[in-house]
Amino acid sequence: MPEPSSSYPSVAPVGVDITRASIARVYDAALNGKDNFDIDRAVLDQVRTVAPGVAELAWANRDFLIRVSRFLARETGIDQYLDLGSGLPTAENTHQVVQRINPDSAVVYVDNDPMVLAHARALLAGHPNTDIGEADIFRPLEVMKNHEVREGIDFSRPLALFQIGTLHHYLGEDADTLMRTYIDALPSGSYVAIAHFYDPELPEYSELARAMEDKFVHSPMGSGRFRTRAQIQSLFGDLSMIEPGLVLCDNWWPDGPRLRTLSAVRHCILGGVGMKR
């Protein structure tokens, strides 16, 4: 018997402003999801004028998240995950990947988008070891004090912290300081995973990266910064990088041999995982 409609969030939950683009809904649109509005799709349309394959940024980011989650669950013994800026639920969320390998893994998502919170709470209701907290991920102390985070994550034991597809929406010049606050709060043996829009500083890709940045920043979303390798590497602080280090997201332990050449867009997003000794 189908569940009553009251079990599900409405198309536009209370508090959702459909006149402004949402980072989470733009990503959802790029992944061919259904939880987005005209204003969100307009952001992608704007970027497509300079990069027709812009949605590949979202797919590269998503695939990286899945592979990192699988690696950490299988190889490191990590059994608690703090996923910052989790976005709208889609196929193969962090908890689904890691709990398939270790059902006892604890996962806490953090977001402050009303639509993300409504959908996630409906999806996760009654789900063991999994929760979502409402906080601004660019305010680390707010995140650390969040009730769901404190209840779901034991900061006396190693954990994995994800900033996957999030920090390029932070436009401040102190992103490395922001990340240092998070890293300082982690116990030894913890891991940090980051994926970030990337300016390769090469003639064949840099112009594309900066053109996409310009469209993102001047779109209804208002963010989407393409940092250089050095700038992205600095976000890891003094963490020990897991091989192969900071690389194109598609090159971080791909699932098999590559039979197709990466598109130019896929050369514009980097990912890596670092460990705190």
Rank of each mutant, 00 (worst) to 15 (best):
E207A: 14
F162T: 09
V247Q: 01
R67I: 08
D111H: 06
H95C: 14
L88I: 15
V143Q: 03
N146H: 09
P13D: 05
N102D: 13
D250E: 10
V192K: 03
F64V: 11
W253Y: 11
R62V: 05
V11M: 10
H95V: 14
I183W: 01
T228K: 05
S263L: 07
P9K: 00
R180M: 10
D199R: 01
V68D: 05
H196S: 10
E151I: 12
M115P: 12
N93V: 04
G172S: 10
G126Y: 04
I183Q: 04
A125E: 13
D28H: 07
E207H: 15
E151K: 15
A55I: 05
D113W: 12
P2W: 00
L167D: 07
D199A: 02
D176H: 13
I153N: 07
R48S: 11
P200S: 02
K276Y: 00
A91T: 14
T261Q: 15
L167M: 09
N251W: 08
V265H: 01
A193W: 01
L208Q: 11
D35L: 03
I137F: 07
W253L: 12
C268P: 11
V16G: 11
A125M: 10
I101K: 08
R260H: 11
S223T: 14
R70V: 08
D174F: 06
V26T: 02
L123F: 05
A58H: 08
E213W: 09
F197W: 07
M275N: 00
G222P: 14
D238A: 03
K145I: 08
N146W: 07
P200T: 06
V273Q: 06
S240D: 10
L31H: 10
L259M: 13
G274F: 10
Y81R: 03
L208F: 14
Y170S: 07
D35W: 04
G165M: 01
L259F: 15
N146A: 15
H95A: 12
P114A: 07
L65D: 01
R157D: 04
R74G: 08
